[in-house]
């Protein structure tokens, strides 16, 4: 609904300036295309980042294509990116987390180990998991490369679908704005 309204308003305001009938239809179509692409990409990239998760809420969907452990890891990473989980904060122990969520202990454990491998948490004795990510530091060359490699296919897909480079940048900035 929002997109439709946006679309109509955008094309109308542009037409008022140029006052050409022919332009309107063309513009309408182009805008529509952009909006749909934007919407799809937006949905793919930001789907797990909607507003309700403002206070470190985790919600896992068993029907999703993404495995549960992956969903959990992703959402914890987002909490770190948003600055809600800070360096030195502790996550609930594996068993506590599993009980709170109502999922298997092994699922949480797998998720925590993945976070440890990524260098975002440190697993300490007595079942403690401490956040070590989130602070500003010099990234190694290989790490930057890793990010680039992961990002490339997503951006390529969006570009191939017709997303303008400028829109991509603004999209990027919009997402980055949510993180501190």
């Amino acid at each position: 609904m929002k997109f439709k309204a946006l679309l109509r308003e955008g094309s109308r305001s542009y037409c008022e300036k140029t006052s050409t009938q022919h332009h309107e239809k063309f513009l309408h179509l182009t805008l529509k295309k952009i909006c749909i692409t934007l919407y799809i990409t937006d949905f793919c990239l930001v789907t797990s980042n909607t507003d309700w998760r403002v206070i470190m809420q985790i919600q896992l969907d068993p029907n999703s294509e993404l495995q549960l452990y992956k969903q959990l890891a992703n959402q914890i990473i987002e909490c770190i990116a948003q600055g809600e989980l800070k360096n030195g904060d502790t996550l609930p122990s594996v068993r506590s987390m599993a009980t709170d969520l109502g999922i298997n202990v092994s699922t949480v454990s797998k998720s925590y180990h993945e976070l440890e491998e990524k260098g975002l948490i440190e697993l300490k004795p007595k079942a403690k998991a401490v956040i070590i990510g989130g602070q500003k530091r010099e990234l190694e060359e290989t790490e930057v490369e890793k990010v680039e490699n992961a990002l490339k296919p997503i951006m390529a897909e969006a570009f191939a679908r017709g997303l303008e480079k400028e829109q991509m940048t603004s999209l990027f900035q919009r997402i980055l704005k949510q993180w501190k």
Partner: peptide
């Protein structure tokens, strides 16, 4: 119904 798994990390803190 559709079961989802929910929690909040801030409560324990």
């Amino acid at each position: 119904i559709k079961t989802v798994y929910v929690t909040d990390l801030s409560i324990r803190q």
